[in-house]
Design a protein around this nucleic acid. Structure first.
Lengths: 325, 325
DNA sequence: CCGATAGTTGTCAACGTTTACCGATTCTCG
DNA sequence: CGAGAATCGGTAAACGTTGACAACTATCGG
C-alpha cells in the first residue's frame, strides 16, 4: 500500500476500491492518523489560515468579530489566526509585513486597518486577498462588508432631536477610525433636517475607551449651560458618560439623556439600559469570512468586490427621554 | 546563487560572506520575499501554530487571555489560532480531535477544557503538548499556571463576614468549571473560621452569564428574610445581582452588598464599582504561552510540569458595606 | 611558490503529500 | 471468447526549504 493509495482513500478520490477505502479509514481512525497539513499546504500553495486583525477594541466587539468569523470557518479546513495590532495608522507597512509574513491565505481587516490605503497598497502588490469590515474609504478595493453608518448616526441623532433636545454634546471616537466620521456625518444630517445648528464647542474627541470617555464627558457636563443630552459614538463611552453624570449628581435620563452606538453587551448591563444602535458585527464578520473563502476557493475569478450592506437598528431603551423643563 | 545560499543569508547562518548576505537581504526586501512557511514547517516538523481554546466566556476574559498569550508570541515565529468550543464536558473527544487535526504545535487550555481528564488522555496519547490555565484536577499533568482560587474565595467571603453580614446569598458559576468548586471551598473556609454556618438554601447555581445571574439573583432577593449580601462567582453575575436589586428598589450597598470575582472591565464600569478579586488572567496566559514555547523549543526535555501560582488580590470597592441595621 | 587552513559556495537528499501518468487487472459486451 | 473500457494500484516528480556534506577559493606561513 503506497502513501498515494492512502491519500486517495482518505480524500474520497476515485481509483480506490471501497474495501480498501474502508480499511484505510479504519486504520487511520485507530492510529489517530491525520495527514500532515504542512505537506498539504506546500503542494496546494495554501496554508488554510485566515488572519483577523483589529486594534484596541472593546472586548465585546472583538469577541463578536471572532465568533462571527469562526462560525463560518468551523467544520471547514480553514483556521483563524488573530493578529491584533496597535497604532496601524502610524505604521501601516509593519502590519502589512506582519500579514504577509504570517503565511496566511487571506485576512479579515477590521477598523481602522481596513481604511489604511498604504496597507491595502502593500497587500495588493502581493495579490494578498482580504475582506474589509465596515471600511469608509476606497470603496472599490477588495471584498467589503459594511453597514450604513451615516444612516445609523442620523437615526440616533434624530431620536434625540425628536425628544426635544437642542443642546446636545457629542463624543467622537478615535479619529483614526473612519467610522467616527461616518457617524458624525449622520448626526450632521439629522441636525440639518431638524433645522438645528451643531454647537462645535460641544463636540469633543474620545478614543472609544471608557476612561477617556469619562474624562471628556466630565468636561462636557461642566459647560454652562449644561447639555441636556450626549451622543456617544460607542457604548463604552456612553456608559462612561452615565457614570460621569452620576458622579456629578445628575440622573439619567431625568437630567441627561445618553445614547451610544454598537449594542454591545455593556449597553444591556448598564443602568439605565442604553439607547443605542445595533451594529451587526457578528453577521458582518460571518459574511466577510464567507466571501473571503469563496474568493480563495474559486481561485480563478476573484469574485466581484461587491459591497454588501447589513441592516442596523435603532434600539430605544431607558437612557433617553425628553429634556428637563 | 542557490536557494541554499539565500536560506543561509536570511537565517543569519554562518558560511555566508557579509557582502552576499547584505545583497540577499536587500533583494528579499525589495521583492517582498518571505520564505514559505509550509516548507519550513514540513522540514522542521513544526507548524509554529499554538491553539487557544476556551468556552462561552465573558468577552473581557477571552480578550485578556488572548492578549496575554499574544504578548508572549509577538516578535516570535509562533502564531495564535483560536478554537472556541462549547460543551466540552459533553464531548471532550471531539475537542481532542479538533486540536490534533488542526496541525498545532501545542495548545493553551482554559477552563473548563483544562479539567477534562478524557481530553488530556487523548492529547497525552499523541504526545501533544499543552498548558493548562487554572486547572483544578489532575494537578500533575502538563504545564500548569494557576492562582490560589480557594484563598481568593476565602478572602472575599471573609471580607463580607468581617463587615458583619451573616445572611449571605451565594451565586455559583457553571458547575462544569472547576473554578466554581474552588471558590466555593474558599467561602466555606471563611464561614468556618468565622463560626458561621452556610445556609444551603441561599446557595444557587448560575453559569457565569449575566442573564442567568439576573434570574437567580431575583430568586435570592425574594427570600424572606432577604440576604444582606451576595457573593457571586464572577463579575458578570455580580453586576446582574446589582441590577436585580435595583429593579426591586433596593440600594447597593445600603440594602445589599455584592461582591464579584475576576476584576473584569465591567467591575469598574458598573455602578457602584464592584468589590471583587483580581484574577491575573493576562499574566497567567503570558506565562502559559511562555512555558509552552519553552517546552516546544527545548524539545529534548519536556520541562518539569511545575505548577506556578500567580498572585490574586482582593479589591474592596463601593459595592460592599456593613449590613443594614 | 606550495600546501595547509579557513572561509565560502554549491550539490544532494529529505520532509509528507498530491498530481500526472502508466501498467495491470477486472469487467462488459458484441 | 476477445477487444475495449473501466477500475485499481503503483511509480516518479514536484511543492520550497534546510541539513549534511562536498567542493571550491582566497589567505597565510614556511
Amino acid at each position: 500500500m503506497t502513501p498515494k493509495t492512502v491519500s486517495r482513500a482518505l480524500n474520497d478520490a476515485p481509483h480506490v476500491s471501497e474495501a480498501v477505502r474502508r480499511k484505510v479509514k479504519e486504520a487511520a481512525a485507530a492510529l489517530d492518523y491525520h495527514p500532515n497539513i504542512a505537506a498539504q499546504s506546500l503542494i496546494a500553495r495554501r496554508s488554510f489560515l485566515i488572519g483577523l486583525t483589529y486594534e484596541r477594541p472593546s472586548p465585546s466587539y472583538v469577541v463578536e468579530l471572532q465568533n462571527g468569523a469562526l462560525s463560518r470557518l468551523e467544520n471547514g479546513r480553514y483556521r483563524l489566526v488573530v493578529l491584533p495590532f496597535n497604532h496601524v495608522a502610524s505604521r501601516p507597512d509593519e502590519l502589512g509585513k506582519l500579514l504577509l509574513r504570517a503565511g496566511l491565505d487571506g485576512a479579515l481587516l477590521a477598523p481602522p486597518a481596513c481604511d489604511q490605503p498604504e496597507l491595502l497598497d502593500i497587500l495588493d502588490r502581493q495579490n494578498f486577498p482580504y475582506a474589509r469590515i465596515t471600511p469608509h474609504h476606497d470603496l472599490d478595493r477588495g471584498i467589503i462588508v459594511a453597514m450604513d453608518e451615516v444612516a445609523a448616526g442620523q437615526e440616533v441623532a434624530a431620536h434625540l432631536l425628536a425628544l426635544g433636545h437642542r443642546r446636545i454634546g457629542i463624543i467622537l471616537g478615535d479619529p483614526s477610525h473612519a467610522a467616527s466620521k461616518g457617524r458624525m456625518e449622520g448626526y450632521r444630517q439629522a441636525f440639518g433636517e431638524a433645522g438645528v445648528a451643531i454647537d462645535d464647542t460641544l463636540v469633543v474627541t474620545g478614543d472609544f475607551t471608557y476612561d477617556v470617555g469619562y474624562r471628556v464627558a466630565l468636561d462636557l457636563l461642566g459647560r454652562v449651560p449644561r447639555p441636556t443630552a450626549i451622543l456617544a459614538q460607542n457604548d463604552d463611552m456612553a456608559v462612561a458618560a452615565i457614570a460621569a453624570a452620576r458622579d456629578l449628581g445628575l440622573t439619567v435620563p431625568g437630567d441627561l439623556s445618553v445614547a451610544g452606538f454598537d449594542n454591545s453587551e455593556v449597553s444591556r448591563t448598564a443602568w439605565p439600559q442604553l439607547t443605542t444602535v445595533n451594529q451587526p458585527v457578528r453577521q458582518m464578520a460571518w459574511d466577510a469570512a464567507d466571501r473571503l473563502i469563496a474568493a480563495l476557493d474559486g481561485a480563478t475569478e476573484p469574485a466581484p468586490p461587491v459591497r454588501r450592506d447589513h441592516p442596523h437598528e435603532l434600539l430605544v431603551r431607558a437612557s433617553t427621554a425628553a429634556p428637563p423643563d
